[in-house]
Structure formats: C-alpha cells, structure tokens
Design a protein around this nucleic acid. Structure first.
Lengths: 130, 130
DNA sequence: GCAATTCATAGTAATATTGCTATATTTGCA
DNA sequence: TGCAAATATAGCAATATTACTATGAATTGC
C-alpha cells in the first residue's frame, strides 16, 4: 500500500526509523557530507554540485530541515544552511545506542527506548547558524 | 518519479544511503531490536509480536537479509534468523565515521569514502547463525 | 504417502517518494 | 518602482514501497 502502519510500533521505533529514512537517500547524504566539511552552504551551492534540478535539491533540504538535522538562515536572497550540531550528536548517540544494545546484559525492548530522540528538538525553520 | 538518480552520486554515498534506507522502517527496527536482545528468532516469532501479516514480515526479513544485516538458518520447518555480527559492526563503524567526519581537519569528500561499506560482504541467504 | 506447519513468492491495490517544469515569493539594488 | 537573483511551492508523471490475500514449496510427524 505504500503506507506504514506506524500505530503498530513504539514512538521510539517510529522516530528512529524516521531518522534513518531521512538519511536513506544519496542526495541527502551528499548534502550532509558537504555541510559537515564546509560549515555553511546555500541551496545554489548544492545545486551546482549535485546535478539535480534546484527544486529537487530544495525538497531534500526541506526534509533534512524537518528532521531537525540542518537549519537555514536567510541571508539576503540566499539561504545559508548548516548542520544543527546539537541535534546531530543527539542523533548519532541514538543510533549508536541502538547498534550497541546487543550483548547478554541488555534488557529486552530497552535499546530503542534508550536510543530515543526527541521528536522536535528545535525550531525547524530559519534557525541561526551557530 | 519515485526513481533515485543513483548515477549522480558516488558508490559510497549510494551504499550508505541504501543501508539507512533499510533501517528506515519501524518494522525492521523492531525486528533488529528483538534480534539484538534474543540472538535468534523465527519468522513466526516476529509475526506473533509485530501485528503484521506473515508475508509482510517475511518481506521485511528479506530486505534485512539482502542488506547483509541478518542471516537465516533453516531449522526444520522454521527459519532461525540472527544478526550478522561482523556486518553489524562494519555498518556501525561506517555510520559513525559519517557522523564524525565534521571538524576543521576533515578533508572534503573523504568522510563518506572512509565510511564505505562493502556492497556484498557475505553470502546473503541461509548463512549459519554464529 | 499425507496432513500440518512454516516460510516464501505471486499478484494486487493503495500510498509514498522522487524529480521534473512552471510559477510564486522574497530580497537586493538601480 | 521595477528588475534580477535565489529559493520555495504547486502540480504532475513515473516509479517505489508497503501490506494484504492467495498460493506454492519444503519439512516434520503420523
């Protein structure tokens, strides 16, 4: 059906999956990769590098923004995007916890709960680049 | 179009995105969560827990198997699934490298290359649970 | 051999995703 | 004010994904 039965899972499972889903497109990986090494970029910069139409890049940026992974600051006619560093390490920690929750000591069903990420940790649009 | 222009990206970007995509569904998170804490489970076990039809669970298991994250061993009429631990830590390392490749010292475009995962590291079907 | 159990596959329908073109919006500047 | 540049949104078409029912294949136990 194309529709996911989210009501069947815990909030933590849905959130973690949602984050991974956002990372599950090479364009968004490429955008994040560039941002991780250059601090701030405009939509135009990405469009020049990625060989996608500008609206398509804009769409990917919005998904990253909605996930809280990046923030955009309006600067004149362009928008400067940057990684939300706090959210970034939060997500990294959550994913690490999920990956590490193996071994005999881990109580059943706790790993994803511990690896939870807050759903909307920041104002999502036009937050100032730090 | 629903189709991703994979030819526009590097192999590493496509592979990392592909892995995240597999993790981008709560049913697969739930399956992995259970496997991480109980070692081996059959398809029936998952079906009993997740409130999806058995063929739907089977499909999710196949995607995890195709990604190399889990392996299945036929045992009588059932199939015992388990985490592929080696692949698991390989993927974790790749994702960590991607998340960590920030900072001023990281050369542009290297983070995802370093975070690369081999495309098909194991025989994918019916590998023995370790 | 035959029924029961377990899992996988085929086929289908509905929704989601991707990427495009065209257009609106916003800002800067002459 | 009016034009140009940069980005976002609307709308569309094509493919992907999800989940179902029905069915097939493999194995066990009688």
């Amino acid at each position: 059906m194309g529709i996911t039965k989210t009501e069947v899972y815990t909030d933590e499972q849905n959130r973690l999956a949602g984050l991974c889903k956002v990372l599950g497109h090479p364009a968004r990986i490429a955008i994040l990769e560039k941002l991780l090494t250059t601090d701030c970029c405009s939509c135009r910069d990405f469009t020049a590098e990625i060989d996608l139409a500008q609206p398509t890049v804009s769409r990917h940026l919005r998904e990253l923004k909605d996930a809280g992974l990046i923030a955009g600051t309006i600067e004149g006619t362009s928008v400067s995007y940057c990684i939300d560093r706090q959210r970034w390490s939060e997500v990294r920690a959550a994913i690490n916890l999920f990956f590490d929750c193996s071994g005999p000591g881990a109580p059943l069903g706790l790993c994803v709960a511990e690896a939870s990420v807050s759903p909307q940790p920041q104002p999502l649009r036009n937050r100032r680049c730090s």
